Simulated assay, not measured.
Amino acid sequence: MTADHRIIAVELDERTVLWRNADVEQERRVAIFDLLEGNSFRPLGDSFAAATGPYRLVLRVEEGRLAMDISDAAGVPIDTLVLMLSPFRRVVREYFAICDSYYKAIRQATPSQIETVDMARRGIHNDAATLLMERLEGKAEVDFDTARRLFTLICVLHIRQ
């Protein structure tokens, strides 16, 4: 059987999220669409030794931790990866602040101002993706684009925090 290290379905635990405005909801939809269009996700560890993928993923926040419930393609649970959210608090705060500035800029700023804010937003997002890849080390291998999209979804879950 050939390994297929990718995510084919992703859900957010709706009990984790209190509310989402239209901008956040759009970011969530785009992140999930882009993630499913192309990703690289290879969970590591004894639980996944026999797993070949593809995988289904449910993301939730529980007691200050990100839980990633991983199932096989048929929906049979395999294991849960858990990451502390505390290392992400600063970057999530920065990302929310720059996104707020970006959405305001889209509505009232010049194209060059929008571009400046968007460059800053992408920079923070890239830093967060790198942090996520570091935090997943030894638990799962993901490519940079997958980490960026997963970070967006972590932000959506983090709104409640």
Rank of each mutant, 00 (worst) to 15 (best):
E94I: 00
N21H: 12
L66Y: 08
S86A: 11
A105K: 11
E115K: 12
A9F: 03
A105Y: 03
E25K: 05
S40K: 10
Q108A: 14
N126Y: 15
V30A: 13
F33Y: 13
L153Q: 07
A3M: 08
L132V: 06
Y55N: 07
E25R: 08
V30W: 01
L57C: 05
R56F: 03
G53A: 04
A74W: 10
G38P: 00
V10P: 06
E62P: 01
E137L: 05
R56K: 15
Y103S: 00
E63T: 06
H5M: 14
P43E: 02
F33G: 09
F144L: 13
T80H: 03
R20T: 12
S40W: 05
M68H: 02
C155F: 00
F48Y: 15
E141K: 11
W19K: 14
G64T: 04
F33M: 11
T130L: 03
G53L: 09
L81M: 00
L157I: 01
A128E: 01
A3I: 15
D13Y: 13
V92I: 14
M84S: 15
L131Q: 06
L66G: 03
V58Q: 10
A51L: 01
A50C: 07
F33R: 15
A128C: 08
L157H: 04
L57K: 06
E63G: 03
Y95R: 07
G38D: 14
R122Y: 13
I70R: 01
T52R: 13
V92N: 09
L83Q: 01
L12S: 04
Q26A: 10
M1W: 00
I8E: 15
G38K: 09
V17G: 02
E63D: 14
G75S: 03
L36C: 14
V58F: 02
I98L: 08
